[in-house]
Design a protein around this nucleic acid. Structure first.
Lengths: 347, 347
DNA sequence: CTGAAAGCGCTTACAG
DNA sequence: CTGAAAGCGCTTACAG
C-alpha cells in the first residue's frame, strides 16, 4: 500500500542494535558514547554492528533529553559580503572542534526578518546565538529578552549601548580617525562624511569623524555630513545629493565600503575623477585580497578573529560563564591604501 | 543549591499553558497549530497565554514525532567566495517561505571534512541536503550511500557522472568555449590551459577547451596544458611552472577565477604584463559587481538561480518527488570582459 | 558491567 | 469541540 507521504526509510535506532545483539538499549547507548563501564568485547560488538547498520544518533531524541542541541545560531545582515562571510568562517573554526554546528541566517538588513530568525533559532533550541544585529541601537528589546530568558548570545560588529552583553567588534572610533588623518596628511582640509543607519558602528564612526576633525583643527561643515546607509545604493544616493551642492568637499569618508563604492559611482556619473577631483575612503575592506589592486582606501581588522573570538566567547558562556563579566572585545583597525585617495585638486 | 551545569531557564511548554488554562495539552497543541476543530474562544485564550509566556515550540520534540526537522543542510567548499555565498543566498530565498532553515557547512575543499559534515547533517535529521562536493568525480560513494538511505539531496556546481542524482550546474562546456572564442577573436592562436582538481567542472572544462581549439582549427600543445587547482595558490604555482618553459602561449585559460588570479600574480612576478604580454581568462566571476572595474575576463551564470533552483528542487523531492525523474538543470554562461585579455603581442 | 523504569515535549490516532 | 493514551529515540538516575 503506497502512501503519498514523503517516503524516507526508517533509520537505525539504538533499539535495533540492542535487539540484534541481545542487549539493552542502555548498554548500546553507553557503548556508543564511550562510557567507561562497558565490557570491551560488548563495546566492540556494538560498534561493529552500528557501523554495519549505518547508525546515526537521532539529534532530536538526544536533544530532547539532554537539553542541548550542539547548534549555534548565527544571524548576519548579508552573507555575500566578504566581511560577514569571513566572520562566519572564523566562528566555524572556533566551534567545530567542540562538536558544535552552525545554523546561518541572513537578515538582509531587515529587523523584522531578524526577529523571525532569532525566534526560530531559539525555538529550535540552539545552544547559543551570535548576531550582527540590524535593529536600531536604541532598540535592544529582542536581545534584552534573550538575556532574560537566559539564552547565551554574543553581539558582533554592532551592539546596543544600553544593553549589557558580550561583544566583539572593531574599534569604530580609531577606524575613522585613520581615514581622516590619512586625508589630512594628503593635504585635504574640506572633508565630508556619509552616515549610516542607526546602529552603533554608524554613530561611533560619525562621532569619531567629528572628533578627528577637531583634533586636527579642521572645520566641520554640517552641509557635508549627509545621511546615507550601509549599501551601495545608499552611497550612490547620498553621493548624488552631496556632490551637487554649490560647494563640495575635496574628500569624503563613507561609513563603510559598500557606501563608499556607491559614492564613487555617483562621482563618476557626475564627471568627477577619483581621486583627482575627489578622494574617497571606506571602512571594512570588502574588496577581496586576491585582486591585483586595491581600489578603495579603507580600514580593516581581522574578521576571522572577530568570528573566532565570538565563537570562543559563546562557548565559554554556554559552558557556564557567569553573567557578571560579559566580555567586550575590541579589535584595532589598520589603514589600507587604495587608488581612491590622493592629494586634493589645486584651485 | 547551585549546580555547575549551564544554567538555562526551563522554557515554557505546552503543558504549562494547558495547566494554567485548565485544558489538555492536546487542545493547546491544536490551537497553536491552527487546527480547525478548536473553539474560537479557546484558541484566543491559548494564543494570548502563549504569547505572554513567550512560548516557543520545542523543535526536538516536534521533530522526534513528526520525523521532519524543517532543516536543510548545505555543504560548500568555501563560504567566503562570492560564488558560493551567493548560491547560499539563493537557496535561502527558495526554502524560507516554506518554513525551512538552512544549516551551512564549509568543507574547505576537504573530502574528509565533507564526509564528517554530511554524516553530522544526516544524523541531525536534516530533511534534505544540497552539496557542492569536493570528492573526486569518480568517487560518488558518500552520495550513493545517501541515495540508498533515501535522503533527498541535490548536487550543485559539480556532480558525479556515474551517479544518478538531481543536479544544478553551469554549462562547463559552453563556458570554456566562450573564453577560447574570445581569445581567438582577439587574434590568439597559442592558448594554454590550467587544469583543476578531479571534479566534474574541471574535467568538463578541459574537454571543452580541447574541443574548442579543434573547432577553431587551433593547435593543442600538450606542454601548455598543466595541472593546477581551484585556488589562488594553485594558479600561482601552475603559472610559475608554465610561464618559465622555453616556449609559452600568448593566452591562458584557467579553470576558474581564483586560479586565474593566481596565474596573474605569477605573470607579474616574472615581469610579464597582463594583457600586453599574456592574456588570461577565468571562470565564475568571483569579482564582486560593486567594484568599479572588472579585472578578469571570465564567464558567469546566475548563482542566485543555481541556489534557488537547487532549493526548489530539493523541496519538491522532500515533498515526495519520484526518484524516476531526477532533474538535471544546466545554466548558460555569458562572457564578462575585463582588463586581463587583449590582442597577442606582435612578434 | 548491565538493565528496567521513567521522562524529555510534542503529535498521531482513537474515543467521546 | 476536547481529552486520555501511547510513543517518537534517546539519556538520566537508580538498581542490581
Amino acid at each position: 500500500m503506497s502512501r503519498d507521504q514523503p517516503m524516507r526509510r526508517r533509520m537505525t535506532t539504538i533499539q535495533d542494535i540492542a535487539a540484534e545483539l541481545g542487549l539493552s538499549a542502555m548498554t548500546v547507548s553507553r557503548a556508543l558514547n564511550g562510557h567507561p563501564d562497558v565490557k570491551d568485547e560488548t563495546r566492540a560488538r556494538v560498534e561493529e554492528r552500528a557501523r554495519e547498520l549505518n547508525y546515526r544518533p537521532n539529534r532530536f531524541a538526544r536533544g530532547l533529553v539532554s537539553r542541548q542541541s550542539k547548534l549555534i545560531g548565527v544571524v548576519i545582515p548579508e552573507i555575500s559580503h566578504t566581511f560577514f562571510s569571513e566572520i562566519t568562517g572564523g566562528i566555524q573554526e572556533a566551534i567545530e572542534p567542540d562538536g558544535y554546528t552552525l545554523i546561518l541566517c541572513n537578515s538582509a538588513g531587515s529587523p523584522e526578518r531578524e526577529r523571525r530568525e532569532v525566534d526560530m533559532l531559539v525555538g529550535g533550541r540552539v545552544d547559543g546565538l551570535i548576531a550582527a544585529s540590524t535593529f536600531p541601537q536604541d532598540d535592544p528589546e529582542l536581545y534584552a529578552g534573550l538575556a532574560e530568558e537566559g539564552v547565551p548570545f554574543v553581539l558582533i560588529d554592532r551592539y546596543f549601548p544600553a544593553l549589557e552583553s558580550a561583544r566583539v567588534h572593531g574599534d569604530d572610533d580609531a577606524t575613522i580617525r585613520l581615514c581622516v588623518e590619512h586625508l589630512a596628511n594628503l593635504g585635504h582640509r574640506d572633508i565630508g562624511f556619509i552616515r549610516g543607519p542607526d546602529v552603533s558602528t554608524s554613530s561611533l564612526r560619525l562621532a569619531g569623524f567629528r572628533e578627528s576633525l577637531r583634533a586636527l583643527g579642521l572645520r566641520e561643515n554640517p552641509d557635508w555630513i549627509v545621511p546615507g546607509g550601509f549599501t551601495v545604493d545608499a552611497g550612490r544616493e547620498a553621493g548624488l545629493q552631496l556632490l551637487q551642492r554649490p560647494s563640495r568637499p575635496t574628500a569624503i569618508c563613507a561609513v563603510n565600503d559598500p557606501c563608499a563604492l556607491g559614492l564613487a559611482q555617483s562621482a563618476r556619473r557626475l564627471g568627477l575623477k577619483v581621486p583627482q577631483d575627489l578622494s574617497i575612503t571606506g571602512v571594512g575592506k570588502i574588496e577581496p585580497d586576491y585582486l591585483p589592486e586595491q581600489y578603495l582606501t579603507t580600514t580593516e581588522w581581522s574578521r576571522a578573529e572577530i568570528g573566532a573570538t565570538a565563537g570562543r566567547t559563546l562557548l565559554a558562556m554556554i559552558g557556564g560563564g557567569s553573567p557578571a563579566d560579559l566580555p567586550d572585545v575590541m579589535l584595532s583597525p589598520k589603514l589600507v591604501i587604495g587608488r581612491s585617495t590622493g592629494p586634493p585638486p589645486s584651485r
